[in-house]
Amino acid sequence: MTPRTDSAAAFSSTATVADAPRSELLQSVVDVARAIFGAEASSVFLLDEEADELVFQAVSGQGEEFLVGRRFPAGRGIAGWVATSGEPMVVDDLSADPSFDRSLAESTAYVPNALMAAPLISDARILGVLEVLDPSPQARSGVRELDLLAMFARQAAAALRVITPERVREAEERTVLAGHTLAGAEREDALRLLGSLERLLRGVG
């Protein structure tokens, strides 16, 4: 499966006001996920239902510079299974498998040995997938790690939903009347939520 490499305009709102807080939030999500699991890389894919594709929306670590915006079919590979089934998944010993998730491997030029993925679900809606590549050996493969990733992904999805493009567009409309404060407050709420989770997880880990 060859990934499309056109820039991802379809999913994101064209308004830069809408993109900035979301990019900041998603970058924070992947940075934190990578830190929690001591991983080589982490990425967030958001689902573009119209195009039936998953889009790299934020990347931390390997591929950070060139992956954002790339797309691949929503039903394929581990991320596809996670998106369609709504279940988290942990796989290990992948590098022994040359045919593993080629769309991802080709686009990253990096084949991980282990991968964890959890759906971003909020209010029963699947927004995308959070992936962690090559977590540290102590932080992989167990049921507890799977639970932790799923919990973190749920929190991230809840934060993401606070600033979905629809909400931001609404906020922009309100901005005309009430100034810029509401969008900013929502954004701060979301980031604060994530920050407190990060502290919690670091404290536990």
Binding site: P88, V90, V91, L94, A96, P98, F100, S141, G142, E145
Partner: peptide, 21 residues
């Protein structure tokens, strides 16, 4: 048994994985 299970995967290979699945 659903933790660290060795299972067949694509390309005739095996991996290890975890989950109720």
């Amino acid at each position: 048994p659903g933790q660290n299970v060795t299972v067949p995967w694509l390309g005739g290979r095996t991996i290890r994985t975890t989950g109720n699945s």
